[in-house]
Structure formats: C-alpha cells, structure tokens
Amino acid sequence: MASSSSNKLVFLAFLLLFVFSNNLVAGKPQKVKLNLYYESLCPYSQKFINDDLVKLFESDLHRITDLKLVPFGNAKVSDNLTVTCQHGEEECKLNAIGACAIKTWPNPKMHYWFIRCVEKDTKNWESSCFKTYGGEKAIRDCYSSNLSKKLILGYAKQTLNLMPKKEYVPWVTVNGKPLYENYEDFVAQMCKAYQGKAPLPKVCNSSASAKKKVLKLQVSYGEDFHH
C-alpha cells in the first residue's frame, strides 16, 4: 500500500514538472502593466486615448499587455468625499461613466472601445456609443447609484497615492514606472519592458524602425491653467 502511494506521488511530481516545463517552452506571455491615469475632458488625454492607445488593439501588442485605465486625473477630493473635477461637473460625470464601463466590462478589449467612443464625442456620446457597444442599462444603473462614487473614490486613491506622484495628465506608467514626456512612445517602452518567453509582438519590430519625435504637451495641476 505504501509502495502504491509512493508511486502515485512520484507520478504526480513528474506530471507537474512536465506541465511547468511545457509552459516555459510554449512561452506563455508575461504581461507588461500599462496604466493610464486620465481625465475625460482633457484634450491631451483624449488625443492619447483616441490616437495613441488604439495602437494597442490595432496590433498584436495587446497580447502582452495588462492595460488599466484610471479615470480621475487632476480631480480633487474634499474632506467630506466630494469630488471636484478640473473641467467641471461634466468631466466628473464622464469620469464616472468611464468607471462604470470598466466595471461593466472588466476586459480592457471591451471597455476601451466604449471609452474611446465617449472621448471622441463627449457631447453626443449617448446617442452613438450605447447603440454601438450596448451596456446602457448596466452603465446607467451604475452611474445613478452609489457604486459610481465608490469606483471614483477608489481611482482617486490610486491616483493620489502614486509614487512618484503624477505631474500632469495623461500620466502613463509601464510596470509602475512613469514615461514622463515620452508617454506617446509607449509602444517602444512596452516592447523594451517585455520579459516573456514568447516572441515579441510584430509591432515591436515596426515601431523600432519607425520611431519619430513628437511635440509633447502636458496638462499641469496648477489652478491657473486653462485650456
């Protein structure tokens, strides 16, 4: 009986070793953490979401990326937990809508496209984005309840506790490290940070050969800043 149990243990040990080794050979991707801290009515946040971040899903880069969107930006939280946004109440609303979209569709491949739709037309998004992507009841229910406030306060905590602290929006980090003025070059930075066993995404080869400098503009936190 003891011999039979020992044989089973040996068999299980070899099976686990085989599965572990097979995973290494297969090269399961090790995800690179890409975080975007933004606010909905900041034109530079809108540009990054619409024109730059879309590269993630229009290429094979998404397979090695763990994307996290954090809609709070330069907002402030008072002692009584009232949130005030840099661009007024409408921005607070759209930040909350973004938070509810992320809650409704946890998969970045789904909530990114809805948020991008909102950011492309912040005035008329309701007539087009719900029709295109759905989720209207879940997002409206989330927004009209206390859930949206809880979500925003959670994002506030993440944003305000950043180390090093956020200096402007959009604020982009790769594996927790801010890209500063090079945030629009996030593709190259993602490729550089990738340590997985699988081959690099094809976009990494093209981005290396097509590098170009772009004028960088950021939104400061100062009270006297106006768009």
Rank of each mutant, 00 (worst) to 15 (best):
M1Y: 05
A2D: 15
S5C: 09
L9H: 05
L9F: 05
V10G: 00
L12S: 03
A13S: 13
F14H: 05
L15S: 15
L16V: 11
F18K: 01
F20A: 10
S21C: 10
N22V: 09
N23M: 11
N23K: 10
L24N: 03
L24A: 07
K28A: 09
Q30V: 15
V32T: 14
L34S: 04
L34T: 09
Y37H: 09
Y37S: 01
Q46T: 11
I49H: 04
N50P: 00
K55N: 14
E58T: 13
S59L: 06
L61P: 02
R63L: 05
T65L: 12
D66A: 12
L67D: 04
L69N: 02
P71W: 10
N74W: 01
K76N: 08
K76Q: 13
K76T: 11
S78R: 07
N80S: 15
L81M: 10
L81W: 02
Q86R: 15
H87V: 11
G88V: 10
E90Q: 13
E91G: 07
L94V: 06
A96T: 02
C100S: 05
I102F: 02
T104I: 04
W105E: 02
N107G: 04
K109S: 13
W113E: 14
F114E: 10
I115G: 00
R116F: 01
V118D: 08
T122G: 02
K123V: 05
K123I: 08
N124L: 09
N124K: 12
C129A: 09
F130P: 06
E136P: 01
K137N: 14
A138F: 02
Y143I: 09
S145P: 02
N146H: 08
K149Y: 08
I152A: 08
I152C: 00
L153C: 05
Y155V: 07
T159G: 04
L160V: 12
L160A: 01
L162F: 06
L162T: 11
K166Y: 00
Y168E: 03
V169E: 03
V172Y: 08
T173C: 09
T173K: 08
N175D: 15
K177L: 11
Y180H: 12
E181F: 06
E184Q: 14
F186K: 07
F186V: 07
A188K: 10
Q189M: 07
A193P: 06
A193Q: 13
A193Y: 09
Q195P: 01
L200S: 07
L200F: 02
P201Y: 13
P201F: 12
C204A: 09
S206T: 14
S209F: 07
K211Q: 15
V214C: 06
V214E: 15
Y221V: 12
E223D: 14
D224N: 14
D224C: 02
H227V: 14
